[in-house]
Simulated scan of single mutants.
Amino acid sequence: MQILILIITVLLFSCDDGFNKYEVYGNALGTTYSVNYYAQQDQNIKPKFDSIFQVINLSLSTYITNSDISKLNSGIQAEVDNHFKNVFKAAKIIHQNTEGYFDPSTGIFVNAYGFGPERYNMEMSPKVIDSLMNFVGFNQFKLDGNHVKTDLDSFYLDFNAIAKGYAVDILSDFLKNNNLQHFFIEVGGEVVAHGQDLENNKIWNFGIETPDENNTSRQLSYAVSIENKALATSGNYRKFKIDSSSGQKYVHTINPKTGEAKKSDVLSASVVAENCMIADAYATAFIAMGFDKAQKTIDKYQISTLLIYVNSDNKVQTFISDDLEGIASPL
């Protein structure tokens, strides 16, 4: 889902003040991750990061059958851990702030359209969509201690649009708790940047990809400079599927109001926030909302956002919130 490309030099080097630059990378949460940090000696953080990813997976991954969320989706009244509760509570707030356009209960549609771990192999007719909508509505879920309660007979929660951002935040907290102050963490395009890029003596700089589903060169359209902030980008132009029988094109972001998987007029949404979990969720919601509703939400809650969208004349335009002027620059 994420479409962020890093403009970072990752060569190991030594600073005059004794700090070295280290790079760690690997696979986790169904995607890749990379970390650059400055320290006086190697912290050997990869095994610790892998342990954190494992714990988060066991809580929130729909691709692991014995995770907390998978147990809930299969009808088991399992206890959930603090990671699950943290994500659930944040999702509730963003669900409310976006008037329901951020809705983790649309997981049943993610599977129905063939984007999730379970593929229902259904013909997505209006009748089928109307039937599945009976199992959607995050407002019908609540936390009761360590349990999730709902009156829905069947459901499929999916926190993939917020869990990667949450994982980045947990990794960031781990580094700061270990006295590392200059780093960036990227998981599947979701980023937290802290301190500065000491090699170049400037704050971290990241690039926003030009939204073009036929663009195999992955060109960049904007650069964003952030310090002690998170950045998440969402778009629908790369991850899609075409039904073999009907030729219908489905994108992976579901409109929770209609159950449809149609292309939005917002091609790309990039959000800068205090933490990556919030940025991740809002970026997804703005794709589903479309430009007009997204702009109103951005203005109401003062969300730092860059939207690349198509206007009524079918021309690609850019909207940049006032607080990102000077931080986001065209390339």
Results as ranks from 00 to 15, higher is better:
1 M>S: 05
6 L>W: 00
8 I>F: 00
9 T>I: 11
10 V>K: 13
13 F>T: 15
15 C>H: 12
17 D>P: 13
19 F>K: 15
19 F>W: 10
21 K>F: 06
21 K>Y: 05
23 E>T: 15
32 T>P: 13
33 Y>Q: 10
35 V>D: 02
36 N>T: 10
37 Y>N: 05
42 D>V: 09
47 P>F: 00
48 K>L: 13
48 K>M: 09
49 F>M: 15
50 D>T: 11
53 F>E: 10
59 S>M: 01
60 L>F: 00
61 S>F: 01
61 S>Q: 03
65 T>V: 07
70 S>D: 10
72 L>E: 14
72 L>H: 13
75 G>S: 08
76 I>P: 15
78 A>W: 09
78 A>N: 13
82 N>V: 08
86 N>G: 07
86 N>D: 14
89 K>R: 14
93 I>M: 05
97 N>D: 03
98 T>K: 02
99 E>Q: 06
99 E>Y: 02
103 D>M: 02
110 V>E: 04
111 N>D: 13
112 A>Y: 03
113 Y>M: 05
120 Y>V: 03
122 M>G: 00
125 S>K: 09
126 P>E: 01
127 K>E: 13
131 S>K: 14
134 N>E: 13
139 N>L: 04
142 K>V: 12
143 L>M: 07
144 D>K: 05
148 V>A: 03
148 V>D: 09
154 S>P: 15
161 A>Y: 05
162 I>N: 10
162 I>R: 08
163 A>M: 04
169 D>H: 09
171 L>C: 15
172 S>I: 08
173 D>T: 11
175 L>N: 05
177 N>S: 07
185 I>L: 05
185 I>K: 02
185 I>R: 02
202 K>R: 11
204 W>H: 09
207 G>M: 02
208 I>M: 05
211 P>H: 09
219 Q>W: 01
219 Q>K: 09
221 S>P: 14
223 A>G: 14
224 V>S: 00
224 V>L: 01
226 I>E: 00
227 E>D: 07
230 A>H: 01
231 L>E: 01
231 L>I: 04
232 A>L: 04
233 T>V: 10
234 S>R: 02
235 G>K: 06
243 D>A: 01
244 S>E: 14
245 S>I: 11
246 S>R: 01
247 G>M: 02
251 V>M: 00
256 P>D: 03
256 P>T: 06
259 G>I: 12
259 G>D: 08
260 E>N: 07
262 K>E: 06
263 K>G: 06
265 D>Y: 06
270 S>D: 04
272 V>E: 03
273 A>G: 11
275 N>L: 04
276 C>S: 12
278 I>E: 13
279 A>P: 15
282 Y>V: 10
283 A>D: 08
289 M>G: 04
290 G>A: 01
291 F>E: 11
291 F>S: 08
295 Q>V: 12
295 Q>M: 04
296 K>I: 11
296 K>Y: 03
300 K>N: 08
300 K>Q: 10
303 I>M: 00
311 N>T: 10
312 S>K: 12
315 K>Q: 15
317 Q>C: 12
322 D>Q: 07
323 D>P: 12
328 A>I: 14
331 L>Q: 13
331 L>E: 10
331 L>R: 14
